[in-house]
Design a protein around this nucleic acid. Sequence first.
DNA 1: ACAAGATAGTTTCCATGGAAGATAAAGTTA
DNA 2: TAACTTTATCTTCCATGGAAACTATCTTGT
Lengths: 175, 175
Amino acid sequence: MPQDADPLARPTDDDAVDRIVGQWQRERPDLDPGPMHVVGRITRLHWALDEHLCRVFARYDLGRGEFDVLATLRRSGPPFELTAGELRGAAMVTSGAVTKRVDRLERAGLVGRRAAEDDARGRLIRLTGRGRELVDEALEAHVKNEARLLAGLTADERSTLTDLLRKLGRTLPSE
Amino acid sequence: MPQDADPLARPTDDDAVDRIVGQWQRERPDLDPGPMHVVGRITRLHWALDEHLCRVFARYDLGRGEFDVLATLRRSGPPFELTAGELRGAAMVTSGAVTKRVDRLERAGLVGRRAAEDDARGRLIRLTGRGRELVDEALEAHVKNEARLLAGLTADERSTLTDLLRKLGRTLPSE
DNA sequence: ACAAGATAGTTTCCATGGAAGATAAAGTTA
DNA sequence: TAACTTTATCTTCCATGGAAACTATCTTGT
């Protein structure tokens, strides 16, 4: 069984998802509650994690989207320059969203745009010196923050969790 | 072990997060990549799951937020009625967002509003007959969909994953 | 009972991002 | 090469939700 079937055993360990699933079992006992535990928790963990993450980004006057662009450019390595299309693919957002994110970052002086020489339609977005400095600094705070958020799990648990999440992602229907 | 630890053995099993972490290890070998594997995958799984989930909601002309309100009312049991504040707490959104979600649902005839008799400030939101029918139908499709999305994991894996996610949620810094 | 503060919802304004059309530049084909 | 078609990016319009101000009502302290 997925977890304690007996609610009296450790009732205080119930989390929000357990309570929601309990309600469903009362109201719709015909539905299999197993999948809700996973999907519901991924959703809620995402909300919670995202909030913590954004708080760090905000310290550098960045939104999630802007940090994402800076980080993508940074980890692409020198010369820290990608096309808008490459950024779009990495961020899994529409081209319009990339345009706006880059607009804001350009206004802040953290990235620059230039035309691609081989294809005049293409635009290359590159970290400026300030952008590079800022993202390197924000990144350290970000990773430290992530480590803090996961500190409640042992290394083994993190590893098992990683493997299960990887497998889930890989086995998801492709469309 | 859930899958190959040796990247040379089956390098094509790398997923997007593995590739991103690989870039970071090349560019910033000083940073501990462990936490990224978990946080990055939760984020991306959330995106992917959300997309699949919303596709089902859309079949009933519902957005995620609207479905969330209907489902919260439905699982609260008869008389399928909650205050706006209770909905706000369940959905983890602001009161303004609740107002707008309920506005849309009311316009669609799926919920009704009435004043609370004990507190004239309070508004009780209740499923209409049509709302009840719709959510019961949408719910079945939703749960079936969730089951399909998780079909790639064995029952044991789902159970382990559930436990690890529950623990992570419980050990997250509270603010 | 009355003033001050707390609380429940709503409204207004803003930020973000999606969808789809608009542009401009390639690529393709006759 | 002229005419399509496709591609890369940008623009416009819209939907959603957050923040904070606003309104009405309730609670508390005196």
